[in-house]
Simulated assay, not measured.
Amino acid sequence: MRVVVAPDSFKGSLSAAQVCAAVAEGVRRAAPGADVAAVPMADGGEGTLDCFLSARGGDAVEVAATDPVGRPVKARYALSGDGRSAVVELAAASGLPLVEDVPPDPMNAATTGTGELIADAVRRGARDVLVCIGGSASTDGGAGLLRALGVRFLDAAGVELPPGGAALARLASIDDSGVPAEVRATRFRVACDVTNPLVGPDGAAAVFGPQKGASSGQVAELDAALAVFADAVAARGGPRVHDLPGAGAAGGTCGGLVGLLGAEPSGGALLVAEAVGLPAALDGADLVVTGEGRVDGQSAGGKVVSAVAALARDRGVPCVALAGGVAGPLEELHALGLTAAFSLADGPRTLAELKAGAAPLLAAVAEQAVRLFRR
Rank of each mutant, 00 (worst) to 15 (best):
N108P: 00
G113H: 08
G70K: 02
D82E: 10
S85K: 08
A121F: 02
S94D: 10
G95S: 08
A86N: 07
S85A: 15
K74G: 13
L96A: 11
V122F: 01
S80R: 01
P72L: 11
G115I: 06
A121E: 02
T112A: 06
L96H: 11
A86G: 05
R76N: 10
P106F: 06
Y77P: 15
R76Q: 14
P103H: 12
A75V: 13
L117M: 15
P68R: 07
V122E: 01
T111P: 05
L96N: 11
A64T: 12
R84G: 14
G81N: 04
A109E: 04
V102T: 13
A86T: 06
L79N: 07
A93C: 10
G70M: 08
L98K: 05
A65E: 01
Y77I: 14
E89F: 03
P97E: 14
V102M: 04
V69D: 09
T112S: 01
V99I: 15
E116V: 06
V99M: 13
P103T: 10
L90D: 03
V73R: 15
A65Y: 02
G70R: 04
Y77V: 13
L90T: 03
E89L: 03
G115W: 03
T114S: 14
V122C: 01
M107S: 06
S85L: 01
T112W: 13
A86E: 05
A93K: 04
P97T: 13
L117N: 00
A93S: 13
G70W: 09
L98A: 06
T112H: 12
D67W: 08
S94A: 15
A65K: 01
R71C: 09
A75N: 12
S85Y: 00
G70A: 06
L90R: 02
V63R: 11
S85G: 01
A91W: 08
L90P: 07
G113W: 10
A78H: 11
G81C: 03
N108Q: 05
E116D: 06
E116L: 10
A109F: 06
L79W: 10
V69E: 08
E89Q: 11
R71Q: 14
L90S: 03
A64M: 07
P72K: 09
T66I: 04
D67N: 14
K74I: 11
T66S: 10
S85H: 04
D101A: 15
G83P: 12
R76F: 09
R71D: 11
K74Q: 15
V87N: 04
V102H: 04
P68V: 09
K74H: 15
T111A: 11
D105G: 00
V99L: 13
V69Q: 11
G115F: 05
A65G: 01
D82F: 05
A110G: 00
Y77M: 12
L90V: 09
V88M: 03
A92Y: 01
A91D: 05
T66Y: 10
V122Q: 00
G70Q: 04
A119E: 04
D82I: 03
G113T: 08
V73T: 14
A91N: 03
G113P: 08
